[in-house]
Amino acid sequence: MLYGNAVAAISSGTHRLGSQTYVPSTPYVLMTAVDAAFEATSAAGAALAFDRTQMVFPDGTEAVREVSFSVHRGEFVTIVGPSGCGKSTLLKIASGLLDATAGSVRVDRDRLGYVFQDATLLPWRTVLGNVELIAELHGIEKSERRRLALEAIDTVGLSGFVNHYPRSLSGGMRMRASLARTLTLKPPVFLFDEPFGAVDEITREHLNEETQRLFQQEGFAGLFITHSISEAVYMSTRVLVMSARPGRIVAEFEVPFSYPRNPELRFDPEFARLSGEISHALRGSHS
């Protein structure tokens, strides 16, 4: 992307970043409405595209404003931003749970994977029953949905727990079951709303690796939300930084590392530098 956009953004005076002596060293850009035109062209062929999306809730809360970006298949895009800036709202708009008040979203909603912050497993169903649910709701015939479910359960490493009820699973295992459930229909677009926020650090790293492996295997278009910068960099091809409410995309970082990524990457100096820049942009976004 063009550095000129960043200059335009800074000169429009909306960003504190501009007043700091801060020289970006990776491909880095500040997004404004100016970018919309560019996004419109890059959005062609994207699996998921937001176009100047705005959300004003009935009570007058403006959650997101003029958000435009797109995610192609084979891209894993992560959004970081302060709490309450409208990240979940964006995913809800993408999935159709909410209707944007202005702008548009383009995505195939029939095959959309959505992993919630909580595992949201039905307590009266076993792991197998839970993982079968989505195929069941789509009217897929019994033997086929069983096959799909067992395959997905195997992928997340829960094969030994097929007949367990959620209450006898640990938090990490529940999250795995939830992932498996979303996997069954092999969605080309995957939305993750802080899926691993509630599990401990070690489980989280495991789940990160598994998700990354799935991403490589399936090549879906991923849109991921997290509060952890390290998680964002480790997982993504691109990181977007959102401003405080009303949420806008204020910075964008390409992550240059190739997949598969080694967990050790987290201690790489380049990784640390990129994390630092994102952290900096994030602090700047609290305006």
Binding site: L97, Y114, F116, Q117, I134, L137, H138
Partner: peptide, 23 residues
């Protein structure tokens, strides 16, 4: 039933009857 579970059923276009019976 939790909000998130309802969302799940909404996402996958569950009918009223399905939602009642399965959730």
């Amino acid at each position: 039933a939790e909000r998130g579970m309802h969302d799940l059923f909404t996402l996958h276009h569950a009918s009223r009857a399905t939602r009642l019976r399965k959730l």
